[in-house]
Design a protein around this nucleic acid. Structure first.
Length: 564
RNA sequence: UGGCCCAUGGUGUAACUGGUUAACACGUCUGAUUUUGGUUCAGAAGAGUCUAGGUUCGAGUCCUAGUGGGCCAGCCA
């Protein structure tokens, strides 16, 4: 990274700098990325992992990947595997692969200590009764009748909970803090509940599972994480987080108390970030799977054709602060275009073809033209295309009654065929319903690209992409658009977000005409379809059935003109 | 009705930590270049920093109040 240009620090970096200045040794800097393996990583998580891993890179500090697996009801191993794959693809390396479940025994031992010390107790009421005693934000709660249970009884019951002597819901372990505390999280929060479900890593070894608040801070503490970064909604948890760490703090063994700080999560328009809702989209079949290219998941974006570089750049531009935000998806698109423009080869693809016949071009003749692969990168070289009498061009590139600003093919006007000749439209052939089936034109034999003739240097208003009618391959092209039709699908309190799904988020083109160079295109390869957009070969693509996914269209000022 | 957090062009972030005409990116709009209506280049519009007080020689930055928004009453994380 280029550090010569000084950029301002975000507030998290400022906190770290401050801590360093106040004596925290740089060697003690330690971060972590703690996803729960109950879904796929999405662009919102990208903010969190880019922040943490980015800090690790900037300060040369270790970053643990920690799966926060305290709830066996929702967590599954394949989610953890997918998360690791996504992080690797993004180019991040974690210091240690950790699991909160690795600390279950330690957590249990600490809980027993707290019981002995009188700061935790077993409650045996229904969840409804406890909810009632909890009070409200404006009213204090009341003490549980079990709050003063003798230590011995607590110990016996807690052990019973662990050993499976009780059914789920019959007992819980609670921290004894203050039922009248203004912060509701401090009103004797639950530490453990009984869950009968087998855990993806510990199987049936445990029958009790720690709650987030009890497990998270302690895990940070065990790993000696210096800065534990999470999103804003955990701000009220900070007080509890610190209270719990104090309960188990042992200076000689684990000297560094972790510090939780909160930043605003990323929101983006025309999509959703809720894992629950994304799961619903998958389960109800509104999208194909977690890696559907319309999903805001990392794997979906990978399949769509996004690059790690573009995603990292995007996260970098978005910044880190504490106010709620709604990022314009246009920024993300700008980042991919910027990356792909420099790195991707141009090819010609006609998505909605109409036949073009050059009436003065000899029948049966073909010739080879040479075309640059990437005007932004000379080292990308050139390729050859076969030119012939009959071609396909884009239907939208011809208009019979064209407005003066239409820089494409029309009758009586000249236009260039990219890398080949200048042609002039002469007449159209229509079917009974008035649809154009053929466009007849003539070409100027002296105007061949690169020939250096005066004719070839003639300025024409437009340049079209094309493909030979007899020398091309066909492919499926998935034209993806935003998943939702409105900026904020979750804003309407009356309607379900599902009602705002964009019905046109996927349009499948089954027989697009592609130039021969694409014959052996391999999954995940990216191309720019000249004048159309950036496309990525789908992972299910084969040489028999090529499939391309549209990553993002090119900027289109002409389309904008038309809409005015 | 309580507590906590937040408030800078359309969007997202800056502003040397109290010091010139509030900056950058995306977006928008001109114009130039261009064998991609892409890219690139040149330029423009758009905020007086939520409001009202206060402290200060000086406030986007500090204080108070108000307004607006967010979070908190899962045996989710």
């Amino acid at each position: 990274m280029d550090n010569t240009e000084k950029r301002s620090l975000n507030f998290i970096e400022q906190i770290i700098e401050e801590d360093l200045k106040n004596g925290l040794p740089k060697s003690q800097l330690q971060f972590r990325f703690p996803p729960e393996p109950n879904g796929y990583l999405h662009i919102g998580h990208a903010k969190a992992f880019c922040l943490n891993f980015g800090l690790g890179e900037a300060y040369n500090a270790p970053v643990n990947l920690r799966f926060d697996d305290t709830n066996p009801m929702a967590e599954e191993t394949h989610y953890a595997e997918a998360m690791k794959e996504d992080l690797r693809w993004m180019g991040f390396e974690w210091a240690k692969e950790c699991y909160t479940s690795d600390y279950f025994q330690q957590l249990y031992d600490w809980a027993v200590e707290m019981i002995k010390r009188g700061t935790a107790y077993v409650d045996s009421q229904s969840s409804e009764a406890m909810a009632e005693q909890k009070g409200t934000p404006t009213q204090p709660g009341t003490n549980s009748p079990y709050r003063e249970r003798p230590v011995e009884e607590n110990l016996r019951l807690f052990e019973g909970m662990k050993n499976g002597a009780f059914e789920p819901g019959t007992h819980v372990l609670r921290a004894k803090i203050d039922m009248a505390h203004p912060n509701m999280l401090m009103r004797d929060p639950l530490m453990y509940r009984i869950i009968a479900e087998p855990h993806h890593r510990t199987g049936t070894e445990w029958r009790i599972y720690p709650m987030y608040d009890w497990a998270h801070g302690q895990s940070d503490y065990i790993e000696q994480v210096s800065h534990s970064l999470c999103s804003l909604e955990f701000k009220p948890h900070r007080e509890l987080y610190e209270w719990f760490v104090e309960q188990v703090y042992t200076k000689d063994k684990l000297p560094l108390p972790p510090k939780q700080r909160e930043f605003a999560r990323l929101n983006m328009n025309y999509t959703i970030m809720s894992k629950r809702k994304l799961l619903q989209l998958v389960k109800e079949g509104h999208v194909a799977d977690w890696d559907d290219p319309r999903m805001p998941t990392i794997s979906g974006m990978r399949r769509r054709g996004y690059t790690p570089a573009a995603i990292r750049k995007f996260i970098d531009l978005v910044g880190v602060a504490k106010r709620d935000n709604m990022i314009d998806v246009a920024l993300l698109e700008s980042c991919v275009r910027d990356d792909l423009n420099k790195t991707t080869n141009r090819v010609m693809a006609v998505l909605n073809p109409v036949k073009l016949i050059i009436t003065n071009y000899p029948e049966g003749q073909t010739e080879t033209v040479t075309i640059e692969n990437n005007p932004e990168d000379e080292s990308a070289g050139t390729r050859e295309m076969i030119f012939s009498r009959e071609l396909f061009i884009e239907r939208a590139d011809f208009m019979e009654d064209a407005p003066r600003k239409f820089f494409r093919l029309t009758l009586g006007k000249e236009v260039r065929l990219k890398g080949a000749y200048i042609i002039q439209g002469n007449e159209v052939v229509k079917d009974d319903e008035g649809n154009i089936v053929e466009i007849h034109c003539t070409y100027d034999p002296k105007s061949r690209s690169g020939s250096g003739t005066p004719e070839s240097q003639r300025k024409v208003k437009g340049t079209l992409h094309w493909v030979s009618a007899s020398h091309h391959i066909e492919a499926q092209v998935n034209m993806y658009d935003r998943l939702f039709a409105v900026e904020n699908p979750e804003a309407d309190k009356e309607k379900s977000f599902l009602e705002f799904l964009n019905p046109d988020s996927l349009q499948v083109i089954t027989n697009a005409k592609l130039e021969l160079a694409l014959k052996d295109a391999q999954p995940e390869e990216r191309y720019q379809f000249q004048r159309i957009g950036y496309f990525c070969v789908d992972k299910d693509s084969t040489s028999e059935q090529l499939i391309f996914n549209r990553t993002v269209p090119l900027r289109d000022t002409w389309a904008k003109q038309k809409n005015k």
